[in-house]
Write a protein that binds this DNA or RNA. Structure first.
Length: 519
RNA sequence: GGCCCCUUCGUCUAGCGGUCUAGGACUCCGCCCUUUCACGGCGGCAACACGGGUUCGAGUCCCGUAGGGGUCACCA
C-alpha cells in the first residue's frame, strides 16, 4: 500500500509551491490506489492553529485534492497534529538516548557559537567538540548543578558516507563527517521538526516521502534518526522547487515587491486586485497575491486550469500532450518523469491554461461562476430576480472568449448601468461621434428605424443595419462605431447586435438620444 | 565559505549515441478573419552554457570550467 503525505505548517496561506508538492504526492498515491495523508506540522505554533489552517484546507478542497487521513476526516493513525503527538516524540528521544544515538548536551548557545566562529576563523569545518556532552546521569547532574540546561542532540556518525537513493535524483552521497550533531529536543522540552517528522512518517506508515529539494540536505540526519530507531526507510523523491517568475530563486511569498517588477506578474496581480476591489475584498499583499492559492479562487479561476498548469511545472508526459484533467493526471503521472531542475512560475502560461479551460466551460456553468461577482459588486440581487437568468445568459454568451476568469464579468457591467449614468469615453466619443460629420445624422436616421423594427433581436437589427448601410451607401464602420459609443460609452465591446438585444429597445433609444444630445 | 543539487528557444518542456538542418506549448512579431476588442486560422523569430575527452558518430556518455540554486538554526 502506497502512502504519501503532505505536511503543511499552519501559516495561514497555501503557497503555489506547496500545492505542487501536495499534488505530486496526491497523484502518486491515487495512481497506486494508495492513500494520501495530511499531517499538520505545528510543533512551533503558538496560537490559532485552526484559523491558520483554514485557508490551507479550503485551498485543497477547492482544487479537489482530497486526503484520506488528516484534519477534519480523521483516520486510524490520529492525531494528525504534531502538537498532539509529543508523547511519541518523547519516547523516540528516550530510545535514541538509550541506544547512544543521542546525548544530552549542556553547552550554552554562546559556547556553541564560539566554537563555530573559531572553526570559521581557522577555515576548518565546524564540528561540535561534544565538550558539554553528558553521557551519564552523574555528568548531567554536575552540569545541572552549574545551572546549565540541556538540549538533546543527535550523536551523528563522523565517518563513512550516507547514501540516499532518490527516486528523482538518483544516488546522492553525503559524508557523515560534514553533518552536525543536530538538536532534536530543545531546552524547553519541545521537539524539532526532523525528529517529529521521522517519527510521524513511520507511525503513519508513509512509504514515499515526496518533498521539495530543499529538504535533500536534511535527509542524512533523518535517515540517521530512522535507522537508529530501527525504522525501515521510506523511498525519497526530492522534487525541484518552483522558481520565481523570470528567475531561478525559490518562489517566496515575501518577495512580492520584487516580483511586481516582472510585467506579467504585475498584470496578473493588478487584474486580481481590480476584481477584488470591485467586490470589496481586502487585498493586502499578505493574503492576496498570485503566490497564494486563495488569489485564484477569489478572482474566479477554474481549479482544473490551475492544477493542469501546476502539474506541468516540472513534469511532462511527452513532447505533445499538455492537457490533463484529474483522471488523466492520475493515470499518467510518474515520478521518473519529474524534472531535476527548477521550473519558474509563468503567469502568462497560467493565464493561457485558464483561458482555454474557461472557453470550454459550458454556458450554464459559466453563468453560475460569474453570478456571485455581480452580486458581490451590487449589480444583481441575491437571490437574483427571475428575469436575471436569461439576461445574464445572453451577456455571457455574447462575451464569448472575453471572460477569462469569472471576475472578468465586472468589465462588462454596462448592461446593468442606468441609461442616464453611462459614461462616454472622451476619446471614443470624439473620434466616433463628434468628428465624423455624418455620424450624427446617420445615427439619428438609424435610430428612427430602430424604434420601429420588430422583433428587437440581434438577427433583425443586424439585417436592418446592413440594409440601411446599403441604402445609404456608406461604410458600415461609420455607423456601427458611432452606435457602439452611443450605446455603451466605449470604443470596444461585444458584438454590436448582441449588445443591442441585451439592452433592449428602450435602453438603446434612451442612450442614443442622450449621446446625440451631448454632441 | 563547506556540502549538495541543477544547466536545451524569453518561459514550460521533448530528446534516454545516428531518425536533430533539435520537436511541441506559452509569449512575441507578421498576415488572414472582422463593425470594435477578444477569440480563431496561417506563418515567422528564437535554444543544446563553455572546454576537453570517449566514439566512425554526442544535445544525448565521462571529466573539467563557468554560471545558477539549495542548505548549513534550540524554523518548518
Amino acid at each position: 500500500m502506497v502512502r504519501t503525505r503532505f505536511a503543511p505548517s499552519p501559516t495561514g496561506y497555501l503557497h503555489i509551491g506547496g500545492v505542487r508538492t501536495a499534488l505530486f504526492n496526491w497523484l502518486f498515491s491515487r495512481q497506486h490506489g494508495g492513500q494520501f495523508i495530511l499531517r499538520i506540522d505545528d510543533t512551533d505554533q503558538q496560537r490559532n492553529v485552526d484559523e491558520a489552517l483554514r485557508p490551507i484546507l479550503d485551498g485543497f478542497r477547492w482544487l479537489g485534492i482530497d486526503w484520506d487521513e488528516g484534519p477534519e476526516v480523521g483516520g486510524g493513525h490520529a492525531p494528525y497534529y504534531q502538537s498532539q503527538r509529543t508523547a511519541r516524540y518523547q519516547q523516540a528521544v528516550e530510545t535514541l538516548l538509550d541506544k547512544g544515538c543521542a546525548y544530552r548536551d549542556y553547552a550554552s548557545p554562546a559556547e556553541i557559537t564560539a566554537e563555530r566562529e573559531a572553526a570559521e576563523k581557522e577555515k576548518r569545518m565546524f564540528v561540535y567538540s561534544r565538550k558539554w556532552m553528558a553521557e551519564t546521569d552523574e555528568q548531567a547532574r554536575a552540569y545541572e548543578a552549574e545551572g546549565r540546561q540541556a538540549v538533546v542532540r543527535l550523536k551523528m556518525p563522523r565517518e563513512g558516507v550516507c547514501k540516499i537513493q532518490d527516486l528523482i535524483r538518483g544516488d546522492v552521497e553525503f559524508q557523515w563527517q560534514t553533518e552536525q550533531d543536530h538538536v532534536i529536543q530543545r531546552a524547553d522540552g519541545t521537539f524539532i521538526y526532523h525528529l517529529a517528522s521521522v517519527v510521524d512518517d513511520h507511525d503513519f506508515e508513509i512509504t514515499h516521502v515526496i518533498r521539495a529539494v530543499e529538504h535533500l540536505s536534511n535527509t542524512p540526519r533523518q535517515i540517521f534518526i530512522a535507522q537508529s530507531l530501527g525504522y525501515p526507510l521510506p523511498q525519497y523523491a526530492h522534487i525541484p522547487f518552483v522558481a520565481e517568475p523570470g528567475g531561478q530563486n525559490k518562489l517566496s511569498k515575501r518577495k512580492l515587491a520584487q516580483y511586481l517588477k516582472n510585467r506579467d506578474f504585475q498584470k496578473l496581480c493588478d487584474r486580481g486586485k481590480g476584481i477584488a476591489e470591485a467586490i470589496q475584498l481586502p487585498t493586502s499583499d499578505d493574503t492576496f497575491n498570485p503566490v497564494i492559492i486563495d488569489f485564484y479562487r477569489e478572482v474566479g479561476f477554474l481549479p482544473e486550469a490551475i492544477l493542469n498548469y501546476i502539474l506541468l511545472l516540472g513534469w511532462s508526459l511527452d513532447d505533445k500532450t499538455e492537457e490533463f484533467g484529474r483522471a488523466e493526471m492520475i493515470k499518467h503521472f510518474s515520478l521518473n518523469r519529474v524534472n531535476k531542475s527548477p521550473a519558474s512560475f509563468d503567469p502568462k502560461k497560467l493565464m493561457a491554461f485558464q483561458a482555454r479551460y474557461m472557453s470550454r466551460c459550458p454556458i450554464k456553468q459559466k453563468v453560475a461562476l460569474v453570478l456571485p461577482y455581480l452580486q458581490k459588486a451590487g449589480y444583481v440581487q441575491d437571490p437574483p430576480s427571475c428575469d436575471e437568468g436569461p439576461k445574464l445568459t445572453k451577456i455571457v454568451q455574447a462575451a464569448e472568449q472575453r471572460i477569462e476568469v469569472a471576475g472578468d464579468i465586472l468589465d462588462y457591467v454596462d448592461f446593468y448601468t442606468a441609461d442616464d449614468q453611462i459614461r462616454f469615453d472622451e476619446k471614443a466619443f470624439e473620434k466616433r461621434l463628434r468628428k465624423p460629420a455624418d455620424a450624427a445624422p446617420l445615427l439619428t436616421r438609424f435610430r428612427a428605424q430602430l424604434a420601429e423594427v420588430e422583433p428587437f433581436d440581434a438577427a433583425t437589427t443586424d439585417k436592418l443595419l446592413h440594409d440601411f448601410v446599403a441604402a445609404e451607401d456608406i461604410k458600415i464602420g461609420v455607423l456601427i462605431n458611432a452606435l457602439r459609443v452611443a450605446v455603451t460609452g466605449k470604443a470596444v465591446g461585444f458584438g454590436m447586435f448582441e449588445t443591442l438585444e441585451i439592452l433592449g429597445r428602450e435602453s438603446c433609444l434612451a442612450r442614443i438620444d442622450r449621446a446625440l444630445a451631448q454632441l
